[in-house]
Design a protein around this nucleic acid. Structure first.
Lengths: 331, 331
DNA sequence: CTGTTAGCGCCTTCAT
DNA sequence: ATGAAGGCGCTAACAG
């Protein structure tokens, strides 16, 4: 692998001069500069980032820790995150945790060892007790750790979604959410309850307006199971509060011959592109994934530059997408 | 940041001894080892991977270059790729190219500069003219570069899919594929044509068995456009040969009031999870994405270890999933 | 078994 | 404007 001394020799200049010419950082004679650049091109010189990192004490790389690369809920943010960071000269180290808190800490440690300049973290467990040696921004979920977090305003979004269902005339509504160890579950559930209770719904009411809540895994299987247990006593409307939960609910509904929205109305969360073309279209709350990715990147860049961003938890509003699964709503 | 000398001093041993104790690589007295480990834990020592990389001339990291992180077609492979590599002690550097060949070369160069030990590359352009200084495995598509490639056996898969459509009785079939600059387009198209021509179909036939081929972008918009241009003269069956193309076709069909499979039969490619729950279920050829990711990882590890894998283009068989959009097929 | 030391490739200060 | 040299943190080779 050709190195700086090779280039310097070929250009007939000293070591330091070659370095300055390539980096453009110091004074260099126009003639010498040209000869160095020429020689570098000739030899196919590619600076060694590991050596540079050691010397400069920064890697121009940032770590991204997500539960799962196959979930568009994370990758939609990651894509623009990557764009913003690349523009700023940073590249991405990625680790997945499978939502396993142990691997979560492992990944954090690995990133620290690699001396990344910063970390964007979708936490899947409680915060680490040790403070991090590198700047961290949490994305999508917040762990309670004292670092900036960029999340969707799920409380507001789900509240509005629930209002929509209520205003459509349904009086028996069930929400399905993930484990309440995740901030996302708690926020979405809070939004649901706020809307329902404000409208006079009561938990486990046998008459009048009735709300129910089911906890399960944030997976299609979890959604399918929850829906299955609902079968004996179907509500009028179901709100699976993640796109994977929606998937599970639809699977079970299909197997059980339940027609949506005829037999059961539905409003979802998230907006993978198939929501638009499924049946009559799935009414949903769409979090601003792209914007969240951009904001997380910008916040992290601030942190890396030594500035302290203002807000700790940054809630970005999403939007309701009205389609056909909440039938009466679109009349 | 605490370093090796700090640990050595705290443990009351020499520099090298501490290094050997931590790495487990050389002879170390049981007593000294314990004191070092204890001190390291105490101080929260985390070895500096950049320094280690410089010294060892390897980073234990591999680069992954993909067109797009939001496409499950790539991430489904990437997920298991990452698992296999992590088990082998390697971590992932990720770059996306947006299918832009220029960014493709840029990413390759960046990875080389970072001194990754190897690269897994989903190429979006013609091969670079310069040989790569680091081992490369191509995934999903092959560029023609002389490196191992791991791909789905699309020729066979699409041929079988087409046979299925033909045996279902359709005599007017149109395939939609992406730009033929991608090996995937060419292979899938070849499979389609092989089956159709073998069955006596002819291009642009005005009578008898008729096959048509439409080229467009490998995007939902491309699929929608292609489908739109088909509207005046609808075939009996359409084969959008990527999941994004399927998405686009379904969008246009929906807007145009075309019922599937009643007005138009369809067989797709790929198997994102919504294929199963859309309408009567989408009949499709599912490439073995997880297996491809694993194979690519294994092949790269071989290369990194200095072994030369046998096959240049490694075609892994996928499987047909029979569902409802090819109606007569499931009777 | 242990301490000492060279050097991985680079940037940067210091003389010149 | 340029060349020489120190040192980032670590591993491996060597001497003891």
């Amino acid at each position: 692998m050709v190195k700086l001394t090779d280039v310097a020799r070929a250009a007939g200049v000293g070591y330091g001069t070659a370095s300055r010419a390539l980096s453009g950082k110091g004074p260099v004679g126009g003639d010498a500069r040209m000869r160095v650049l020429e020689a570098a091109r000739e030899l196919g010189y590619t600076g060694d980032a590991t050596a540079r990192a050691l010397r400069e004490r920064r890697t121009r790389s940032v770590g991204l820790i997500v539960p799962d690369m196959t979930n568009e809920f994370y990758t939609a943010s990651a894509e623009v995150l990557q764009d913003v960071l690349r523009t700023a000269g940073h590249h991405l180290f990625v680790a997945t945790t499978g939502n396993h808190p142990g691997r979560d800490q492992e990944a954090l440690k690995e990133m620290a060892a690699r001396r990344v300049d910063g970390i964007v973290h979708v936490p899947s467990g409680p915060p680490a007790t040790h403070p991090s040696p590198v700047p961290i921004v949490e994305l999508n979920r917040y762990s309670g750790r004292n670092v900036p977090a960029v999340v969707s305003d799920d409380f507001k979004g789900v509240k509005e979604l629930t209002d929509l269902a209520i205003n459509s005339g349904y009086t028996d509504i069930t929400a399905i959410v993930g484990p309440d160890t995740y901030s996302t579950s708690r926020d979405r559930l809070a939004g649901f309850k706020a809307a329902a209770q404000q409208a006079g719904f009561e938990e486990n009411a046998t008459t009048g307006k009735r709300l129910r809540v089911m906890f399960t895994d944030f997976t299609a299987e979890g959604g399918a199971r929850a829906m299955h247990s609902l079968l004996p006593d179907l509500p009028q409307a179901v709100l699976p509060l993640s796109s994977r939960l929606v998937m599970g609910v639809l699977r079970t509904a299909r197997e059980s011959g339940i027609r949506i929205p005829d037999d059961l109305a539905l409003a979802g969360y998230g907006d993978p592109d198939w929501f638009e073309i499924w049946g009559p279209g799935i009414t949903t709350f769409a979090p601003p994934l792209a914007e969240m990715g951009a904001r997380a990147a910008e916040t992290l860049l601030q942190l890396i530059d030594g500035n302290q961003p203002a807000a700790t938890i940054n809630r970005i509003p999403g939007e309701l997408r009205l389609r056909g699964t909440l039938s009466k709503a679109i009349q």
